[in-house]
Simulated scan of single mutants.
Amino acid sequence: MESGSQVMSPEAAGRGKSRDLRHLRRLARYLAPYRLRVVGAVVALVVAAASVLSLGVGLRYLVDSGFAGDNARALDHALEAVLVVILALAVATYLRAYLVNWLGERLVADLREQIYAHVLRLSPAFFETRRTGEVISRLTTDTTVIQTVMSMGITQALRNLLLLLGGTVLLTVTNPRLTGFILLVVPVVVVPIVVFGRRVRHLSRLAQDKIAAVSSHIEETINAIRTVQAFTQEERESRDFVARSETAFLTAARRARARALLAAFVITLVFGAIVVVLWIGGH
């Protein structure tokens, strides 16, 4: 069943081409009313990263002074310090996870409410050139992606950045020469991962669009079910839906294969680099 409302809008067609992360800055105004929770999440993130870095130092002291040094008193102090760090890490992780997820859900709720109010005020001409399922997908699926980016992507990136900076400082203090070797190996590992990751990101956007097309087809067919049955188009609509569903499956399968290959690639490069660095450090 074809109609004018099934024409893909130019904005939707070019939506996946933008990789400008500066668009995320526009979300900051939605977080402004909850600035105290944002500050709390940032503090918890910093404390959690510092605890992870301190844990390594504490374990080193525990082994060197406690076990290797055969000093019972030093062992007790080291164990107490490690337990305190673990407790701080647990509390900070809880606060970070709760606050970040709360902020993500709150931002998405506010965004959906604003978008829905805006959609209701658009002219009828807008809906003549857009699929109904596409509009619904923007209100549901796309906003969920934003929530995932807020609750997982951004916080993980910040946490990893803090761990990278802190770990580099600790490595430099411990062994500057070995740190230099690590910094030389990092680009060799990171660049292929970034290049391969772009392919995975492209397939993820493509799979999302295919799912939106399936949802749109379902809604349009059900809404016009009387017309479909009146003209005995059930078989044609079923074949059309099967074709769209299979296309969505094949795209999702390509994405799954690419993500699996990326995971294997990351494991090979990362652990291979670790082995090389340990071998260099051992010699």
Rank of each mutant, 00 (worst) to 15 (best):
V194K: 09
R199N: 03
R257H: 09
R244Q: 08
F271N: 06
V145W: 01
I193R: 14
A117N: 06
V194L: 12
A92D: 01
L31D: 07
R73I: 00
A48L: 15
I218N: 02
R35L: 04
E220A: 13
I274S: 00
T144R: 09
R236T: 10
V195K: 05
V276G: 00
L36C: 03
R19N: 10
R15G: 11
F126L: 09
P124F: 05
L111N: 05
M1W: 00
L139Y: 03
L36W: 08
A88I: 04
M150K: 14
G167A: 15
A78F: 01
R26V: 00
A213Q: 05
S18C: 09
H217F: 15
T247D: 14
L62H: 12
S5E: 08
E246M: 06
G14A: 06
L184P: 06
E11D: 06
R255K: 12
V200W: 00
A92T: 02
E2I: 15
I182K: 01
I267C: 05
R35T: 11
L83H: 06
F271G: 02
G282W: 13
A49Y: 01
R244A: 02
D240P: 01
H217T: 13
R138W: 10
Y98W: 07
T93M: 14
S3A: 04
T132W: 00
P176R: 06
T143C: 08
V228W: 12
S245I: 01
R73Y: 06
L120N: 09
V277N: 00
V63Y: 15
A264W: 09
W102C: 00
Q208E: 10
I222M: 14
P187L: 01
E105H: 06
V46E: 10
L111Y: 04
L184I: 05
Y98G: 00
G14Q: 04
A252K: 01
G69Y: 15
H23N: 11
A117V: 07
V52G: 11
S18T: 08
I274A: 02
I146N: 09
F126M: 13
L53I: 10
I193M: 12
E234S: 06
A264C: 03
I222G: 04
R159Y: 06
V173F: 01
S123Y: 13
A50W: 04
I225F: 15
E237L: 12
